[in-house]
Design a protein around this nucleic acid. Sequence first.
DNA 1: GTCCCTATACTCGGATAGCAAGTGTCCGAGTATAGGCGG
DNA 2: CCGCCTATACTCGGACACTTGCTATCCGAGTATAGGGAC
Lengths: 162, 162
Amino acid sequence: MRLSEGVEWGLHCAVLVALLPPDRALPAGRLADYHGVPPAYLAKHLQALSRAQILDSVPGPRGGYRLARPATDVTVLDVVEAIDGTEPAFRCTEIRRQGPTRLATREYRVPCSIHVVMASAEDAWRAELRRTSIADLVGMVGASAPPASLAKGLDWFQEVLP
Amino acid sequence: MRLSEGVEWGLHCAVLVALLPPDRALPAGRLADYHGVPPAYLAKHLQALSRAQILDSVPGPRGGYRLARPATDVTVLDVVEAIDGTEPAFRCTEIRRQGPTRLATREYRVPCSIHVVMASAEDAWRAELRRTSIADLVGMVGASAPPASLAKGLDWFQEVLP
DNA sequence: GTCCCTATACTCGGATAGCAAGTGTCCGAGTATAGGCGG
DNA sequence: CCGCCTATACTCGGACACTTGCTATCCGAGTATAGGGAC
């Protein structure tokens, strides 16, 4: 089971964009510079976040991306599902209905027990991701990141926001 | 994020093998028949379960696979990790250390906040999978499966276990 | 009749192709800006 | 000096190759069994 690398990028970008002054946007190229990742591929994931109404895109000069709603209203799960999709990791193919013990479809009224267990585990995963918002992440980073890193980040903002 | 289809097969096979009389084994071919899946590919996943000490393999005629320990001591998580691997779905690549705000490695003493959140969600997922054993699954299936299906399964056992 | 030996058939195990999805990149459509021109 | 217009440069957005890992398969190594032969 592998989560797309874009999920990590999307979360970091969401945190950075949450720090923008109101009504300012950050281009994909600057976000790629900041994180040291391929610009064109990051752009692809930012488009997914835009489609999911998590980011607003602003075209033209002084354009870029910004949060579409308050950082407190964007959960980590929102970002993960926007990039990775909402399909469950475990997809029950109902193999209990195959083979020599097969019955008529109408006989299977209760869901497959294995499917139930796997689904409840994924629900627990999603619930945990829903507990944390981008605003929470901003707070955690601010409290735990090395002070020198925060200072460098501030300098960088001064430089790229003319 | 996608879980290998083999996980579903492995869980169903574990349940079926748990129903065997003591000291009897079930060949991979019969397991494939029962579930209507490609025999050669199922064999690959059964090998993984064998390597993980979840199943014992018995070579030769009247051989096959059986549980390596009581069904109460095999959790769903054991089976999932044996087939899918133990690597976390989210792999933090530490992109906070890249780009213009990069610092010396020794400055990063606390873990990345995003990494912490993602890891705790996966811990919740694993904890949920650890709560259920193969014996529990056997009980759930026995209580919820259509009676006609259980009867057919019994007939099938009589037929393939000479 | 009993014991031993051998040939058999069946099992697992790892090494080998094929395909889908994630990874990575590019160029075109659209827009706010900045400068120049006319009034 | 002020307003308008145009050309520019910058942005996002979707369409196009490539690589990794899951999917699927086959053939060889090893063993318990069953049958036959000798005693």
